[in-house]
Design a protein around this nucleic acid. Structure first.
Lengths: 188, 188
DNA sequence: CCTTAACCGGAGGGTGCCTCCGCTACGATA
DNA sequence: TATCGTAGCGGAGGCACCCTCCGGTTAAGG
């Protein structure tokens, strides 16, 4: 957003940036992640060139749009670790993850990149979600509901997989989640 | 392929159909599921119009290409049920599922449609895979390695989710699969 | 052979992607 | 408040791909 280390963005640039983000968010939600970028530019009242200057690729725009969502998800993770007793935080967090998947169209594709790739673009997001998931996972291990050898990457990949699996059948999410949680439990 | 109930396809039509299928298979494998259809038509030595006549949509072509793969997967399911002892068939089958996911680029998108949708286009595939998965699942339940209330849909969705999750980290597939299997086991 | 309808193929119109560069206006400076 | 250097704007234009349509071609039955 700010041109790192240099003078801040000009007022019009900042205004356009925000408008683009707002309209992109609406557009992704209403029309899916494949909505034409030219439509987003138009509804933001800027030229297509301006969109491309701020967001060189579609993925860059998605990342920017969903960074907020990722932040929310991270915040929720820490809240749950604080408020919930014992092993309740993990199921609750994974549940919100799948809920995001059903509601925010296109978010999962972005999440996949965030989890898989370690590009410059995503490394901030990557670290944040990794840390948040780590906190929830640690709490679950402390409570004894997850075996110690499960890694944060494992958890994120499984959660992502679950979200993809239940994206179009949210009513099945709880049952599938409970199978998954049973699998992570220390085995007798 | 044959114009149901009517006279068979003309020789040239049948030849072109097969060429298209062969080239599409290669192209999907080499360049991913988003490869331009015009490239496929060109390498099959036919016009783009011919491709569209045989396969009205990209998904129709993918379905045709991957129907073979789905068949293989189904065959393997029955073989495993025959040859493997007790609860070994299910893990082995799920493992081959994830292997397909890493090797056949684009297959998973098609599988998702097959599992989720119940369109005319997919209903044959849908039924086949459903039945094959049912056989493996039944064997596992008999062997006592999966609890009785797990449905075929549950199994397919979880397996699909797992495949998506491990698509780019095949080396983690076995560990994640074992978590999943533990989750399906009758809980003590 | 002749006929005919099934089949072919690619031109062409449409949509969206992305770049490039002449123009605009922000805001620093005096 | 006027001036000026430049960050930022925006859309024309070239490209890639999609998909349809229809005049020409040819397999195959009589």
């Amino acid at each position: 957003m700010t041109t790192a280390g240099q003078r801040p963005m000009r007022a019009d640039a900042r205004r356009n940036y925000k408008r683009l983000l707002t309209e992109a968010k609406r557009a992704f939600l209403e029309h899916g992640a494949e909505v034409p970028l030219e439509d987003i530019a138009r509804s933001a009242g800027v030229g297509i060139g301006t969109l491309y200057r701020h967001f060189p690729t579609r993925l860059a725009l998605q990342e920017a749009v969903y960074h907020e969502e990722v932040d929310e998800l991270c915040t929720k993770a820490y809240e749950l670790v604080e408020s919930e007793s014992g092993g309740e935080a993990l199921p609750a967090w994974m549940r919100s993850f799948t809920t995001y998947a059903t509601n925010k169209r296109g978010l999962m594709q972005t999440m996949k990149e965030v989890i898989d790739r370690r590009s410059d673009l995503f490394s901030r997001c990557h670290d944040e979600i990794q840390e948040a998931a780590g906190a929830v996972l640690a709490a679950a291990k402390d409570a004894g509901t997850v075996r110690p050898e499960v890694s944060v990457s494992d958890l994120l990949r499984l959660t992502h997989g679950l979200s993809v699996a239940t994206q179009h059948v949210p009513e099945d999410a709880d049952r599938l989640l409970s199978y998954l949680l049973d699998g992570l439990r220390p085995q007798g």
